[in-house]
């Protein structure tokens, strides 16, 4: 008989990553918390059919789908880039550079941002990301590379030259 998955164990292992991904997609703490809760409620509902293999991929798939649904419902895609620009701190020490990079990340198109988040925060390979997003590997690869290049470009404009050289 297959081992039953312990939800509290799963919560300890994945809640931070689920919450972070959701937050970086919907850009709102309350919504990200709702999504995190919904993801784990969904896991409770299907607990008996959960298998340990591919569990991580599955959890992220639910997270991304729920985040995109939430975005669609709230029509948050129109979050204004100008607002993000205004939030950029004036001084640029290394910590603030990280803040700037994170804010710039939010300016990246959602189609590119999601695979980048899955790649960096989730640590998934292109193949796993293509399974989560149900898109072919080539598209995922090009979206990530385009996103990263845009981010690099914006970062070079925003951040002092010394950062790129250190």
């Amino acid at each position: 008989m297959p081992e039953r998955v312990n939800i509290e164990e799963l919560y300890k292992a994945y809640s931070r990553m689920v919450y972070t991904i959701a937050y970086r997609i919907v850009k709102n703490k309350a919504d990200a918390e709702d999504i995190t809760q919904d993801v784990f409620i969904k896991l409770i509902q299907i607990q008996d059919s959960l298998r340990r293999q591919n569990l991580k991929t599955f959890i992220y798939k639910i997270t991304v789908n729920k985040s995109i649904d939430r975005l669609r419902n709230k029509k948050m895609q129109t979050v204004k880039n100008e607002d993000i620009k205004e939030e950029l701190p004036k001084k640029k020490d290394s910590n603030e550079n990280n803040i700037i990079l994170n804010l710039l990340m939010e300016k990246i198109d959602i189609e590119q941002r999601i695979p980048i988040l899955l790649s960096e925060i989730g640590g998934f390979s292109y193949k796993e990301i293509s399974e989560i997003l149900e898109t072919n590997i080539g598209t995922i690869k090009s979206r990530i590379n385009r996103g990263i290049n845009t981010l690099k470009q914006m970062a070079k404009e925003e951040i002092d030259d010394d950062v790129s050289e250190n």
Binding site: Y19, Y23, I121
Partner: peptide, 17 residues
């Protein structure tokens, strides 16, 4: 090096629900 910096800034902080 710059790319690694960008990557680590994306990864750096996991938020706590």
């Amino acid at each position: 090096v710059f790319l690694e910096k960008i990557k680590s800034s994306i990864r750096q902080e996991l938020l706590e629900p």
